[in-house]
Design a protein around this nucleic acid. Structure first.
Length: 553
RNA sequence: UGACCGAUGGUGUAACGGUAGCACAGAAGUUUUUGGUGCUUUUAGUUGAGGUUCGAAUCCUUGUCGGUCAACCA
């Protein structure tokens, strides 16, 4: 296969450049990448970036991508995560060539270990965890050799077989690579290859009581699958030396590792460990809480896969530490939702308006989406009693305010121009109702009144409105970078990250909303049906607000 | 007092020794039956110091700053 055609005008990121060169030099006929999550948590936006990169470059250069679960630590892994990860990858719009598990390779990995032992490149060590740490040295001091380093091949073979047979307790023995205790790379100081764990594995059950470490599983798994470009994040840079060492000693297919910097976004955290804490300590309602930067949380909130892909694309791939501005993500979400969302009206904090000169209801046809005329129109009844937002009525006249006030004339979206005549207050001088008269010749689309108005308000019919719960979300953390602050990151959780409006009034069409629909509530923002909605309790999540041009003085 | 990785507007990202560009954010204007959208304009940048070169964001030296590494995690 020939190297593919790249759009001339768009520059390649450094990974794509490497691949492009490899292909041009004929180093590979085609490329194969992999996305290798550990099934110990839900995927987040950082993973989305990795997914887009791995699947994206393969697609771009005519290659393929495997999904491989890096399941070498049975105590933290679970099938729940395996399932959510598959769902998330597919939802994002990617197809894997194969789905594999590192645990598929346990037999072969065991044989690899035996091979290293026979070559004199690995040994069984009896040191405890603490002892190993002590003789490992520090980044500035070399380590010292284990007293078990020079066991004979025969002895090592027997000991390793006994480890596998379950003759030793956890922590009693490990298999270590014999590399160099004086290396400036701590990971090259005789890294552990296998450890004993009497744990039930989600796929291999109780077959094994020894499990390979990351460094003895990942590179070999890549090699077994003949992955050409193994792309991971920067913290694995020092592991590359071990990765290459294993492949070299084993004499197997030389997959190559490349590293890029992980994606961060301000006002949130992007680490599985921290997200897990938020879930387990119930700071959020679950992995798919709409405030979470997880794929499932964003999906539930109403973000689209294409918006997330666009964000990953715009955020780019590089090697430097970076914290993206959340506003870029929100821009991508709005950009997509503006095009596809159906326009609807909902009033969150109602005040009643009486159209004094209207007796019989008038059925209006209102456009579903001005950005897409193929979505057509819906029918909405204009009735004598309607709700508008309480905040859309002002008692004190203000200049340049597009709201209703006594004596002022404004338009009701998709309906008529109305003039506000008076207000009725209760004994506590709260506004009970507002009296308006409508101009019959100002019907939307057929306006012959010639009246110019300053402002258009959204509204719903009192008679036909359906009550819905609305959930609005704010940033999860009060500070831009919770990781950089003093103390525990959870001290910076924003306690006002969720606002619930128990009863908002929505136009009746919204009672038929499904998880396939994205809505824009006019002048409010984008909303998406929550998956926990029922017939009797309809819940909408605010995906993101409209851009607010009102900030000017 | 180590090794490795990195440093371009507020943020993110281009440039491959030859005009520092793009996007987001910000500002101004315009259109508008959403204070949305669209359109126009605009503010703002090469980590410091040396060197190589006709010419350096780019190459070299050195300083500074940030990140990573001492889990039987991945």
């Amino acid at each position: 296969m020939e190297p593919s055609h790249i759009e001339e005008n768009k520059s390649l990121n450094f990974i794509e450049e490497i691949i492009d060169n490899d292909l041009k030099e004929g180093k590979y006929d085609s490329i194969l990448t992999r996305f290798p999550p550990e099934p110990n948590g839900y995927l987040h936006l950082g993973h989305a970036s990795s997914i887009c990169l791995n699947f994206g470059v393969a697609k771009k250069f005519g290659g393929k991508t495997n999904l491989r679960f890096d399941d070498t630590n049975p105590v933290t892994e679970d099938t729940e995560y395996v399932e959510s990860i598959q769902e998330d990858v597919q939802w994002l719009g990617f197809e894997w060539a194969n789905i594999f598990y590192a645990s598929d390779y346990f037999d072969q990995l065991y044989d690899f270990a035996v091979q290293l032992i026979k070559q004199g490149d690995a040994y069984v060590c009896d040191l405890t965890s603490d002892e190993i740490a002590a003789q490992k040295g520090t980044p500035t001091e070399v380590g010292t050799n284990s007293p078990y380093r020079n066991r004979t091949v025969e002895e090592n073979l027997q000991l390793f077989a006994d480890m596998k047979a379950g003759k030793y307790k956890e922590g009693e023995k490990t298999l270590r690579a014999k590399i160099d205790m004086t290396s400036t790379n701590m990971l090259m100081r005789d890294p552990l290859l296998y450890r004993i764990k009497f744990a039930h594995h989600h796929r291999t059950g109780d077959k094994w009581c020894i499990y390979p470490m990351y460094d003895f599983a990942h590179g070999q798994s890549d090699s077994i699958e003949k992955i050409t470009h193994s792309i991971c994040t920067m913290e694995f840079v020092p592991h590359r030396e071990v990765y290459d060492w294993c492949i070299d000693k084993l004499g197997i297919y030389p997959s190559k590792q490349y590293e890029f910097a992980r994606v961060n976004v301000n006002y949130t955290v992007m680490s599985k460990r921290k997200l897990k804490q938020l879930v387990e300590e119930q700071h959020v309602a679950g992995w798919d809480d709409p405030r979470m930067p997880t794929i499932s949380g964003m999906r539930r909130r109403g973000y689209t896969a294409s918006a997330i892909r666009e964000f990953c694309d715009r955020a780019g791939i590089a090697k430097r530490e970076k914290i993206n501005d959340i506003s870029l993500l929100e821009f991508c979400v709005r950009e997509d939702l503006n095009k596809i969302s159906l326009r609807r009206m909902a009033v969150f904090n109602p005040v009643k308006v009486i159209i004094t000169n209207l007796e019989n209801e008038i059925v209006l046809d209102i456009e579903n989406n001005p950005e897409d005329e193929t979505t057509g129109y819906r029918q909405v009844a204009f009735t004598k009693e309607i709700y508008i937002e309480r905040e859309d009525f002002v008692e004190e006249p203000q200049k340049k305010v597009f709201k209703m006030e006594v004596g002022k004339t404004i338009r009701l979206k998709g309906a008529f121009i109305v003039t506000c005549d008076s207000v009725v207050k209760d004994v506590d001088s709260n506004i009970r109702e507002i009296h308006c008269s409508y101009h019959p010749d100002s019907k939307s689309g057929q306006d012959t009144s010639g009246i110019k108005v300053q402002g258009t308000l959204h509204w719903v019919s009192v008679q036909y409105a359906v009550p819905v719960e609305v959930r609005e979300y704010n940033r999860l953390f009060k500070v831009e970078n919770p990781n950089a602050e003093e103390g525990d990151f959870k001290e910076y959780i924003n306690e006002h990250s969720l606002d619930i409006i128990p009863t908002a009034y929505a136009e009746p069409e919204l009672a038929n909303a499904t998880l396939n629909d994205h809505f824009q509530f006019l002048r409010k923002g984008y909303f998406y049906l929550d998956k926990d909605s029922t017939k009797d309790k309809i819940i909408f999540n605010k995906t993101v607000g409209l851009k607010d041009g009102f900030t000017k003085k």
